[in-house]
Amino acid sequence: KAKLLVLLYAFVATDADTICIGYHANNSTDTVDTILEKNVAVTHSVNLLEDSHNGKLCKLKGIAPLQLGKCNITGWLLGNPECDSLLPARSWSYIVETPNSENGACYPGDLIDYEELREQLSSVSSLERFEIFPKESSWPNHTFNGVTVSCSHRGKSSFYRNLLWLTKKGDSYPKLTNSYVNNKGKEVLVLWGVHHPSSSDEQQSLYSNGNAYVSVASSNYNRRFTPEIAARPKVRDQHGRMNYYWTLLEPGDTIIFEATGNLIAPWYAFALSRGFESGIITSNASMHECNTKCQTPQGAINSNLPFQNIHPVTIGECPKYVRSTKLRMVTGLRNIPSIQYRGLFGAIAGFIEGGWTGMIDGWYGYHHQNEQGSGYAADQKSTQNAINGITNKVNSVIEKMNTQFTAVGKEFNNLEKRMENLNKKVDDGFLDIWTYNAELLVLLENERTLDFHDLNVKNLYEKVKSQLKNNAKEIGNGCFEFYHKCDNECMESVRNGTYDYPKYSEESKLNR
């Protein structure tokens, strides 16, 4: 008799109507990190870190770059004969040098303040090359056809396309004075040089004057150069050297050249137009028929994500570079809930034993079982409120962090190594801060989002509990077992918050 009662009780308990509160689960393989956990499985997430590029040089917003090819900045601007293909260059979106560009200054020497000139050019998007001192009329008392084997072109001695090597005419090199007034309405880049012979005999042979000088002056520039005559090792078949100089001439300003020898005179100059998204990159990537809004030396990035880990040097509207390998923000729920887990921000989770793959029309909802059958029903209101809140948060985070910009490298010469090392340390410090901030932001927001979901499920549970009161009992896994019969209409009233407690209280009292 006792065995019969136990079996009867078990049958009745199993047959009781139930309603459970749960949440969506799926077959997603997404994982995120939080402050407290690593690799948390979630139903949905968004990636904030771009880690792919196309490996190509592309047009930037429809404008092609200027590819210097086998030449570098120095060779292009001075007019190395091997860089003749660059003479027609007028406009570009950015400038590309190759790491091993070999054609710079063909006659050995240095372009002074080269690093600063590169910085200036990094904001130039177009130029006009014009004859600042016409070759045939500007130097009537001097020979202007100086050439050298060091600047050979097609097997013949030649010289820079933008400079003139002035030497004596006959047996004399009379003092020369020439000036140019900038009437271009924009900055003009003027380049010139000073020749330093290897011996007094060479000085006399070329310029006749043993104590020659070169003077260059404008409103913002004033220097006097004296040739340094000295024996030097042979470089590119030359014992002599040429140093090259430049200045930016403001609109309306005048530049005056005065010399008694050794002047490498300007022939062509450049009127410059600035462009905020221009820059110089060093890259071996090849040019393709493609378009982008962000270019790196590795390749083009076409992404609206706020961060990238491809390269710190970028041109155009680019994500911020960070050292992170993963920045994924959760938008959905835990896919593998932890039992009795309390989140960092106070939300209680884990009283549900598992997510439901059968509930596909919402994030949170119900599963019921009664004599009429069983089924899932999503709670659309709480789901939609959660979707709206999380979507707004993700968009806000992306908008705040998605300050796209150009980031170019800084140039230092060989004598500025300590400054370069200090600059690298400062840049590394800023990069570490950006990386830390980005990672911390994602970790915190992921923790908040998961706790937010847990709290929403808990609130749904409490909503049902407050309606049923003692007409049902909690069975410990997020479910309630009714003390009365609850048909589909009754189940719907529980879900929509209109459950009639008094209607079922007498039946429940008897069954309790």
Rank of each mutant, 00 (worst) to 15 (best):
N243R: 12
L249K: 02
Y107V: 09
H44F: 14
N145Q: 15
V46R: 10
W165I: 03
E258I: 11
L166Y: 04
A16E: 04
S198M: 10
T247P: 00
N183G: 09
N26C: 04
H24Q: 11
G279W: 07
E128Q: 04
N47H: 02
F276T: 14
Y114C: 01
N182F: 09
Y213I: 08
N141Q: 12
N162P: 03
P140S: 13
S273L: 09
W76K: 04
S137Y: 07
A16K: 11
R241N: 03
W165P: 06
Y160S: 05
D17K: 09
R154A: 11
K3I: 12
D201Q: 08
L57Y: 12
A16P: 04
G193A: 15
A217V: 11
S199H: 10
R274W: 03
Y160P: 04
F257A: 00
K234T: 10
L86W: 04
T282Q: 14
V188G: 07
P88V: 08
N54V: 06
D51P: 03
N209V: 14
C83F: 08
T148E: 01
K234S: 13
Y9E: 00
P88F: 15
C151R: 07
H195Q: 11
G240N: 12
E128G: 02
F144L: 03
A13S: 12
T177Q: 01
V40R: 03
T260K: 10
S150I: 04
Q204M: 10
S158C: 04
G55I: 14
L78N: 11
N209M: 13
F144R: 03
R236C: 00
N72I: 00
V181G: 04
T254L: 05
N39C: 06
G252F: 08
I112Y: 06
P174Y: 12
V42T: 09
P174R: 13
A217D: 03
Y213T: 06
K59I: 01
E97D: 08
A269T: 02
V194K: 00
F276L: 13
D84E: 15
P99Y: 12
F144P: 01
P227K: 07
N182G: 04
A64G: 12
G109Q: 05
E97P: 00
P140W: 04
K234W: 01
T29A: 01
S28Y: 05
N54R: 04
P233Q: 09
P65N: 06
S218L: 04
E187R: 07
C106K: 08
P134V: 07
S172C: 00
A259V: 05
S208M: 13
F144N: 12
D15E: 13
L272W: 02
S122R: 06
R154I: 11
I95F: 09
N54M: 09
E187W: 10
G104R: 06
S137D: 02
S101H: 03
P233C: 02
T254E: 15
A16T: 05
K38T: 11
G62Y: 05
H142I: 07
T282C: 09
Q67P: 09
V235G: 00
L68V: 07
S273Q: 10
Y107I: 11
N209E: 02
N26W: 07
